[in-house]
């Protein structure tokens, strides 16, 4: 019995020290990891769709809570006015969730551009949603209040040939973004002016 207790104490002590160490390393690297993720995952898509903005949207960001989940909003400045906001939303694709960054003009409610960030679609077919700019370009200039559907579902978006499910997923992500936008527009405005 005494042996058993000794074993318990030894393992418990080890776990405690390990846990404490990991927590402190995590705390120390947390901020940097977040910046790195933003730069490498969302950065390329952001700089593509917000081409020509005069600030760095990665620095000009704020968070809002949506059902307990944080959403990052990136503010872009065009012609000296902070009038565009970009954020990520998700839609179900062929191989899992597709992450899409949607940039919206706050004055006209028009989409400035969209860009796929993360996906696990079939290489060469669904992956073209990210690599082929002509698909994403279809969303440019549309009002955020549009219903976003592919043509075979009665909408206006040309699906990528061979990747209808992926195209639907992107449309679903943009639709989700439009809901978020409508719901939080006032808060977004408040945050930008502040």
């Amino acid at each position: 019995m005494r042996d058993m207790i000794k074993l318990f104490v030894a393992v418990a002590l080890f776990s405690m020290v390990a846990g404490g160490l990991l927590a402190s390393v995590r705390e120390a690297t947390k901020e940097r990891i977040e910046v790195q993720q933003l730069t490498f995952v969302k950065g390329p898509a952001l700089s593509q769709i917000l081409e020509g903005c005069t600030n760095n949207p990665l620095d000009d960001r704020f968070k809002l809570k949506d059902n307990g989940k944080d959403i990052d909003f990136f503010v872009a400045e065009f012609d000296g006015k902070k009038n565009t906001v970009a954020f990520e939303s998700y839609g179900k694709g062929f191989g899992g969730d597709i992450g899409v960054i949607v940039a919206v003009n706050l004055e006209t409610d028009e989409i400035v551009g969209i860009g796929v960030t993360t996906h696990s679609e079939t290489p060469g077919l669904g992956s073209r949603a990210k690599t082929d700019p002509s698909f994403a370009a279809q969303f440019k200039g549309l009002s955020i209040n549009n219903p976003f559907k592919v043509k075979s579902d009665g909408g206006e978006i040309d699906a990528i040939s061979g990747a209808t499910v992926t195209s639907r997923g992107v449309c679903a992500a943009v639709t989700a973004a439009s809901e978020t936008y409508k719901q939080y527009k006032n808060e977004i405005m408040k945050n930008i002016q502040a």
């Binding site: 393992v11 080890f14 776990s15 390990a18 990991l22 390393v25 690297t29 990891i33 790195q36 730069t39």
Partner: peptide, 25 residues
Amino acid sequence: IACYIIVIATFVTVVELVMQAYAYP
């Protein structure tokens, strides 16, 4: 063996976090 695994897993997690912070690609 359990103690070894705790030690190893701790250092691996440290490496993982540091790599995320400084060598994300």
